[in-house]
Design a protein around this nucleic acid. Structure first.
Length: 946
RNA sequence: GGGCCGGUAGCUCAGUUGGUUAGAGCGCACCCCUGAUAAGGGUGAGGUCGCAAGUUCGAAUCUUGCUCGGCCCA
């Protein structure tokens, strides 16, 4: 062979500068800088101006700390939505936002104070808030860079922040809408309260400490009324570890499914306890009072039973009846199976009593003592102490002593072991205490929403006939509107609907007040004399105007007169000092981002909200309630939810387990395109995993896609428009590929409509791997390398390659935002950004008859490949080009040779493969009859080299 | 403890209304090519469809229980 000429230089090999190795960590920041410099987002806005809009409203992440994998997933999916919709030609302005108020940031500032040995209470609130503001601003800046680094496109120069004065003013304005329409009221609710700090605490500010010497007492309540006559005169026994709550007892609770028994003493005493707790009760009251089991009955039989308080002789509050109520929370884990209810001091207590018309009495003051006028252990009792005072609750303390004297104390000791909540800061015990709070009513008829117009809207949307059932005159409640909207909105995946439905259906009134510093004020006045909420649009307008100018600091007591205006005496009004729960802030983002006009390219309502499934309780719901209460409908047309990212074994990630995957690290080592490809490859509608093995798989897939582009770029070297061939003039293989491309086009469009991005990515990778690399490109290699450049077949192939290139680079642009830019720039150095392009115009080349024929041919090809393999194993054949094939097919043998990438194909009756005797062409390496000797040229190559 | 959701090859995912030997891509193993070359091609081995009962002629698919995991509550 060495004496034969080397034809390598005459072969048209792919030629490109596009490197096989990506080097994404180095390259991506450069591409990013270019986008910034060229303002690609701004260009895109101009390019899509006037087109149909698609509004994805960003759910604000909390401005605190570096981004984690959940942010990366969420933002990548959002970016995919923005870019795919944009690819379809729509105008998709995306305004990212941040949630800036709230407790976690307050804590960080307090933490800094502690390090400097400063006390928060010594710092003016205004100064404290300024520090919170700076802190949030700092993290907004950091996260902005991190989101951009991920390849997120959006209006990052003008994001929305809940702490901007304009936003704060709009949030207050939204609150006023609730106030002005009678949906807002001041109620009460037990909250965690620290008597030492005299402040309400958030759950996260409470820590539990194990105690071994807590008091435990059994108290007898005499039954005065019951359907079961045996019970009258008996005593219901309650057990508690907080003796101080007995003075505020208002009811008893039993478990309807619990079995009860009368425990009878030798003196004829009868005590009502749960049967399964009989022994424990006996043990507590001591063997000197030996008990026997009397009558048994089910909890349900206790309905209607009424007891009286052991201190009923004090009259007034204590003389009221203490009804026995059915409580589903009653268990027989400990105690007596009868739970004493103090609605002031327990959540279950509060809810059960509220449902039965029993209101809290606010007997315990902020400092933990009973109030001055309280008949038992109140102001003039010198034994009065804070309720968390240990001797006060002791077996020999005043409560137990009085109960003992009344004959109601059956046992008392100070030896109970359990965990009890303490203040995170002072380490002192905390209690549940009812405090005034602000609520939005869920079940009040909303008179400001015209039921008729709402109903008509509904009819129009549903295309149905007006249903004159008289319901039109009933004003709907917030809950009803919200439930209707949940029916109407599109949920992806569908299961999200049921989840939010269940929550809205069963939720209590919306508690919106917090006793905190860093947030939007509940900027309301309450008339001291009447306790009435002041609703005056003129006052409200002055307040929002001030906040719009100066931010939340404008809500200052010194300015009460200014806000109230002439004719009102500030002394007559209480200025509410609570702030709004941050969920009200974020629930109002649709108002100040979509509707306000501050972002003129936005529009209300949004087409889509897209967040993790935890937001069914959070943002999806707060936004829904806010919008339904103020505007009578949801602020979104569709809701997309994603699951959570677990570690490689499916376990939840946590810092303490050390199984977290840091997206910033992955970007540093592998690149943002790898994270994006991961996020869009998994089924994000469910929980999904990430880990080294998974990321390796993603990288492998990335490499294959990259090499496909590299091959296309190389094969298209020197391609010119005038090479193009019309589809009708193309060989069948090209037309079959056009069919495949059209089919893929349609499937991809559907995947975009369904937000089914993992199918989208899978279809593209499968297509690249199977249809292109292993099939089309492999078969046409001979043609590309060896045919004359002007030949119809080669031109047809390159026409297809050009179409494939344009399709693939656009389709993958929303996924591999950096790589496709590199690909595009390699082919079109002056072609602008790939991200300005629109969906490729493939045209409909579907031809089912052709496809059916080719599917058979491909099946035959697979059989031939199978048949070649044994000969390869026997070392009789090396390359498939050495195989001579007999097949049962009437197809043109030349076509089959090309398709199989083999030597001569003979028609026959049975599939068989033999090594060919033909010599090998020195240029195209095919074994053909006309080649006399290995290394000579075949007819085609002879012709080409002329 | 309660509500909701999920568990298909090593990995990522398909599996329509229950119906022939459960599929794909990747990875892996072996082979080929050395003119896409830290690339490309071929073949192949991988699954008791979380577990256990039940309904049915027949179940990955329907029912129940259990288990593991997740989100939200308590």
């Amino acid at each position: 062979m060495s004496d034969k000429p080397n034809y390598k230089e005459t072969v048209f090999l792919p030629k490109t500068d596009f490197p096989m190795k990506a080097g994404l960590p180095q390259k991506e920041p450069l591409i990013l800088a270019k986008w910034e410099e060229e303002d690609v987002y701004g260009q895109l806005r101009k390019a899509r101006a006037g087109r149909e809009k698609f509004i994805l409203h960003d759910g604000p992440p909390y401005a605190n700390g570096d981004i984690h994998i959940g942010h990366a997933l969420n933002k990548t999916i959002k970016d995919m939505v923005v870019r795919t919709q944009s690819l379809l030609g729509k105008d998709v302005p995306y305004v990212p936002g941040w949630d800036c108020h709230g407790l976690p940031i307050e804590w960080k500032i307090e933490e800094q104070y502690r390090k400097k040995k400063r006390d928060k209470n010594d710092v003016p609130a205004k100064e404290f808030r300024a520090e919170c503001r700076d802190y949030a601003a700092k993290w907004v800046k950091v996260q902005t860079e991190q989101f951009k680094r991920l390849g997120n496109i959006g209006d990052y120069d003008r994001p929305y922040l809940t702490m901007r004065p304009e936003a704060e003013a709009q949030i207050v304005a939204e609150l006023f809408k609730f106030a002005e329409t009678g949906q807002l009221y001041r109620g009460a609710k037990p909250v965690m309260w620290s008597p030492v700090e005299q402040t309400a605490l958030a759950d996260a500010e409470v820590e539990y400490e194990d105690l071994a010497d807590s008091p435990q007492i059994d108290v007898a309540f005499e039954i005065v009324e019951s359907k079961l006559s045996e019970l009258v005169g008996a005593h219901a026994v309650v057990w508690t570890t907080t003796p101080w709550t007995i003075p505020v007892n208002q009811a008893l609770a039993y478990g309807p499914e619990v079995d009860y028994v009368l425990a009878e003493g030798s003196q004829g005493e009868k005590w009502l306890v749960a049967e399964s707790l009989f022994d424990a009760f006996q043990a507590r009251i001591g063997s000197e009072r030996s008990l026997t089991k009397g009558m048994r009955f089910k909890g349900t039989e206790l309905a209607g039973t009424v007891a009286r308080h052991p201190m009923h002789h004090l009259g007034g509050f204590y003389a009221r009846p203490r009804p026995l109520l059915a409580g589903h929370f009653v268990t027989t884990d400990s105690g007596t199976g009868i739970v004493h209810m103090a609605p002031d001091h327990g959540e279950d207590d509060f809810e059960l009593c509220k449902a039965n018309g029993i209101d809290p009495v606010f007997a315990v003051m902020g400092d933990g003592r009973y109030r001055d006028d309280w008949p038992w252990l109140g102001g003039d009792d010198e034994r009065r102490r804070s309720v968390i005072n240990k001797p006060f609750n002791a077996p020999d303390g005043p409560i137990c002593s009085d109960l003992r004297e009344a004959g109601a104390l059956l046992s008392a000791s100070a030896d109970y072991a359990h965990s009890y909540p303490h203040s995170w800061r002072s380490k002192a015990k905390v209690i549940y205490r009812c405090t005034p709070q602000w609520f939005i009513a869920i079940d009040r008829p909303l008179h400001h929403l015209d039921p008729k117009s709402l109903a008509e809207e509904r009819w129009e949307e549903e295309g149905g006939e007006p249903n004159d059932n008289g319901g039109v005159d009933d004003f709907p409640t917030l809950r009803e509107i919200a439930m209707d909207e949940i029916d109407r909105v599109r949920f992806v995946p569908e299961k999200g609907r049921r989840r939010i439905q269940a929550m809205v259906e069963g939720r209590p009134d919306w508690l919106i007040s917090r006793q905190r510093a860093w947030g939007v004020p509940i900027a309301l006045f309450v008339e001291k004399k009447t306790g009435e909420l002041l609703v005056d649009p003129e006052v409200n307008a002055r307040i929002t105007a001030a906040i719009r100018e100066e931010g939340v600091d404008a809500w200052d007591e010194a300015r009460a007169a200014e806000f109230l205006g002439a004719g009102r005496d500030p002394d007559d009004y209480e200025m509410v000092r609570d702030i709004l729960d941050v969920w009200f802030d974020s629930g109002s983002t649709h108002a100040f981002v979509l509707e306000s006009g501050d972002w003129s390219e936005q529009r209300w309502p949004a087409d889509l909200y897209l967040e993790g499934s935890d937001q069914h309780r959070g943002w999806f719901q707060s936004s829904l309630l806010e919008s339904c209460g103020t505007r009578g409908r949801a602020p979104y047309e569709a809701v997309l939810t994603h699951g959570f990212t677990m570690d490689a074994r499916g376990k939840k990630m946590s810092k303490s387990l050390g199984n977290t995957v840091n997206p910033l690290k992955v970007m540093e080592t592998s690149g943002a395109d790898i994270i994006r490809l991961w996020a869009l490859s998994v089924d994000f509608t469910e929980d999904h995993r990430i880990g080294d093995e998974i990321l390796k798989g993603v990288s492998d897939q990335y490499r294959k896609l990259r090499n496909n582009f590299r091959y296309m770029l190389g094969a298209l070297d020197g391609f010119r428009e005038d090479e193009c061939v019309a589809p009708a003039d193309m060989p069948e293989l090209e037309r079959y590929m056009l069919h495949q491309l059209s089919t893929l086009d349609h499937k991809l469009r559907r995947a975009v409509d369904d937000f089914d991005f993992n199918s989208y990515v899978r279809m593209l990778t499968d297509f690249a791997n199977e249809e292109l690399s292993a099939f089309f490109f492999d078969i046409r290699k001979d043609c590309l390398y060896c045919d004359a450049p002007g030949g119809l077949k080669r031109r047809s192939y390159r026409t297809l390659l050009d179409m494939l290139f344009h399709a693939m680079v656009r389709w993958l642009a929303p996924v591999l935002v950096f790589t496709t830019e590199e690909v595009w720039g390699t082919r079109y150095p002056d072609g602008g950004s790939v991200h300005l392009l629109e969906w490729p115009e493939i045209g409909d080349h579907r031809d089912e008859a052709l496809a059916a024929r080719w599917e058979k041919l491909i099946a035959l090809r697979e059989q031939v490949n199978e048949a070649i393999e044994p000969l390869r194993a026997e070392k009789k054949i090396r390359s498939s080009l050495q195989a001579e094939v007999t097949v049962d097919s009437r197809e043109d043998p030349t076509l089959l040779e090309e398709l199989f990438i083999t030597s001569t194909v003979h028609p026959g009756t049975q599939l068989s493969v033999t090594p060919t005797d033909h010599a090998k062409c020195g240029r195209c390496w095919r074994h053909l009859p006309e080649v006399k000797e290995d290394g000579d040229l075949c007819a085609r190559c002879e012709e080409v080299l002329k």
